[in-house]
C-alpha cells in the first residue's frame, strides 16, 4: 500500500478504495434485490457488461439484460444470492481497475444453500462527477465452465 503524499492525498486514496469496494458490494446487493435501476446506474452511461449472457453496452441494454434473465424488477428473491469476495482495487487518478470473485449460491433441493457457480469479475472503473462507475465489467464463469453452466441453465428453464 502506498504511504506517501500529504494526509489529504492519503485520505483521498483511502476514500477511493472504500468507494470502489462499496460499488462492488452494491452490485451484488442491487442484483439480488432485483433493483435494476440502481444496478444500471452503477455503470457509466456507455458502460459495458460482458459475460456468459452476451455483451451489453449502455444502461438501458444492461437493464434489459436483467429483465430478460431474472424477470420483472422488484420481485422478491429468497432463492439465489451473489457472494462477493477477494476484491483487489488499483486506482490511478480518475481511473481504476479491479478484480473480485463471485460465488452464486442457490437454494438446493433440500432447501439449503448450494454453491452453483464461481467466477471472476474484471473491471475497468471511471470517476465521473465525483462518483466511481463501471466502465466495463467482464464476468468470467470458471466453475463450472461456461458451456456446462449454460447447459445447466437451459435444463433449469425446462
Amino acid at each position: 500500500m502506498e504511504t506517501t503524499g500529504s494526509v489529504e492525498e492519503r485520505l483521498q486514496r483511502i476514500e477511493d478504495q472504500l468507494a470502489i469496494h462499496r460499488l462492488l458490494d452494491d452490485y451484488a446487493a442491487f442484483l439480488d434485490a432485483r433493483d435494476y435501476e440502481r444496478y444500471a446506474m452503477l455503470f457509466a452511461p456507455n458502460g459495458e457488461w460482458i459475460g456468459g449472457v452476451g455483451h451489453h453496452k449502455g444502461r438501458a441494454a444492461i437493464r434489459a439484460m436483467l429483465v430478460d434473465l431474472l424477470g420483472p424488477p422488484g420481485s422478491e428473491n429468497r432463492t439465489e444470492f451473489h457472494l462477493l469476495s477477494n476484491a483487489r482495487v488499483d486506482v490511478e487518478g480518475d481511473r481504476a481497475t479491479a478484480t473480485s470473485r463471485y460465488l452464486f449460491v442457490r437454494r438446493g433441493s433440500d432447501g439449503g444453500p448450494q454453491p452453483a457457480l464461481a467466477g471472476l469479475y474484471t473491471d475497468m472503473l471511471v470517476r465521473a462527477d465525483g462518483r466511481w462507475l463501471i466502465a466495463r465489467r467482464i464476468a468470467d464463469d470458471i466453475l463450472p465452465p461456461p458451456e456446462e453452466w449454460a447447459t445447466q441453465c437451459t435444463a433449469d428453464r425446462q
Binding site: 429468497r78 433440500d110 439449503g112
Partner: peptide, 8 residues
C-alpha cells in the same frame, strides 16, 4: 434466515 427458509 434465507436458506433454508426458517420453517425448513
Amino acid at each position: 434466515g434465507l436458506m433454508p427458509a426458517p420453517s425448513q
